Every structure is written in structure tokens, then in C-alpha cells.
Amino acid sequence: MIKKLLTGVVIAGVVVFAAVWAMSPVLAGQAIIRAAERGDEAALERLVDFPALRESMKGELNDLLIAEMRNDPRVVENGLGGLTTMLAPMFISGAVDTVVTPQGVAAMVTTAQAPEADGTPAPEPADARDEPDLHKAWGYRSMDVFAVTLTDRDRPEHSLALLLERRGLFKWQLAAVDLRTER
């Protein structure tokens, strides 16, 4: 009798632990979205790993800008295209440092748009009537990376994946944005 009770308690404990462990990134993603919608900078400071997010965005924006320049015949034909390619990371670095702030993250989350490759920040909705209707998709990319993909229902060709990374057993922080999800 006691052995069955103890076994039941252990099994219940394991099930509760697994459920909380699996749901923790969803709760963190929801907290980020709520904080962005409220403009709660203090909450965003806790929920976002800004140094990691900046480094991730610098790499992604640099890759996007170089790809755009390679596909632009004006840059290819221009003798300064190589110089532009070499200087692009410097300009992107400064732009990302300026844009990736609590306000910038809030704008990305509420509009499902990342800054442009040239560092132009994501647009902010003019007022409540202009706020996009966002579809949210949730899913693990690995055991330690969870994606919250935001898609504007009015512009389904634009989506933005917020990548949360595990920081301990139950804590998750926004550490990267997948810009390649934008079509």
C-alpha cells in the first residue's frame, strides 16, 4: 500500500516536472509578448539577453545586406561594391546597437517586423487601430532553443521568429531573431 502510494507520488512529481519544464518557454514567450504590448521596459530587460540578441542580429543583418548587394546590379557593376561589402558590418554594428533596445524589441514583437538590413528600425503602429493582427506559432527548434513565430495576418509574407534560449532548467530569454523567416 505505501509502496504504491510512494510510486504514485513519484510518478505524479515526474509528470508535473516534465509539464512545467516543457511549458516554461511558452510562458516566457507569452511574457515577452505581454511586456512588449504594454511597453514594459523593465520586464523586457529581464526577458531579453540584449548582448546575445545584438550579436545575432548583426550577423543576420550583415548576411542579408551582403546578399542584397550581390543581387543588385548597380553594386555589382560599381567598382566600389567590394569596399561597400567590407564596410557594411561596421555600419550594421552601430545601427543594431542603436535599434536593439527595449523599445526596439517591443516594436519588433508588436509588428512582427525586424529592422531593415540598413538598420532602419521596425515601424511602430500609429495607434491601436493600426496594430497588426498577429498569428503566433510556438515550437521547439532544439531542446535549448524555442521559437515564437509571429506573422501579420494582413501581410502573411512577413513573419518573424523570436528565438528563446534556455538559461537553466526553467528560465528562457530572447537571444536571437530569425530573419530568414521573412519571405
Rank of each mutant, 00 (worst) to 15 (best):
W138R: 10
L162W: 09
Q103V: 12
P25H: 07
L174A: 00
R38M: 15
A95G: 00
K136N: 09
V75C: 05
E124I: 13
R34C: 04
E55G: 06
A117G: 02
R141K: 15
E165Y: 14
A36Y: 00
L162A: 14
P25L: 10
T84P: 04
M86K: 11
A42T: 00
T149D: 04
G104W: 01
R129Y: 06
P115G: 00
A22M: 09
A19H: 02
Q30S: 11
A67K: 10
D178P: 09
E157D: 14
S142F: 12
A122M: 08
G81H: 00
A161V: 03
A88T: 14
I32M: 11
S93M: 05
I32P: 01
D154Y: 08
S93C: 01
A114I: 03
P73W: 01
V9F: 00
S93I: 05
D152K: 04
V10K: 10
A95E: 01
T7S: 14
V48K: 10
H135G: 13
A137F: 05
A36S: 13
D63V: 10
L44A: 04
G104Y: 03
E124N: 05
A175M: 01
I11L: 13
S93E: 15
D97W: 08
A95M: 00
F50K: 06
T110H: 11
M1T: 11
I2P: 07
I33P: 04
M23E: 15
T111M: 15
L47T: 05
D127Q: 09
L174H: 04
A22V: 01
H135Q: 13
L83Y: 07
V148C: 11
T7Y: 09
Y140K: 02
E182M: 14
A52Y: 05
V99L: 09
V26S: 06
T7N: 13
D144N: 15
